[in-house]
Amino acid sequence: MEKFTTLSGVAAPLPMVNVDTDMIIPKQFLKTIKRTGLKDGLFYEMRWTADGQKKDFILDQPAYQNAKIIVAGPNFGCGSSREHAPWALLDFGIRCIISEDFADIFYNNCFKNGILPIKVSKEIIARLMDDASRGSNAIIEIDLEKQEIKGPDGGTVHFEIDAFRKKCLIEGLDDIGLTLEKKSSIDDFESRQKDSQPWLHTAS
């Protein structure tokens, strides 16, 4: 997984509430057996009309074509567990999403892919939404180590993040590898469970 330390880039404003993962990546793109190449499906129905015309969606506007950050409305990423949603965002170049709150599974999925989801208050979102709407003139900087967002005018805001998740992102850790280091605890757990709940260890 790619590390996340600092990021500096254009932020696209997407103030809609409840952006669901069906919107982020519609089902026809879930037939893939790969993680890559999903950017064409990103926000597909919001970007393209049914007969294939561009709709001038925010990420297609010249100012935002190279956006690395999305400032989003509340409950971003609700709905399906499809990790194709963060894969598609990543494939487009989005490394950070800032919102008041996220749906749990999507939030989790971001961290597994080197995307930083940041939760901040409604007031801060309003300010960042303003900044973002200034387009490519407004570069937002993120410093994960310091847990800071720096706006285009130099003002900084602090954000909270789980210490363990932060460490995994900064170091680009493979959490399967981390868990496998605890193999003996897993072995012990299993043998205890085999004694106390033997029915969980008969074959399926």
Partner: peptide, 20 residues
């Protein structure tokens, strides 16, 4: 509960998940 594909891989490999 539902999980993403990275966690599917985590469960396949370790039979566990990292959670709070």
């Amino acid at each position: 509960f539902g999980i993403g594909t990275s966690e599917v891989e985590h469960v396949l490999a370790t039979q566990t998940l990292i959670q709070k």
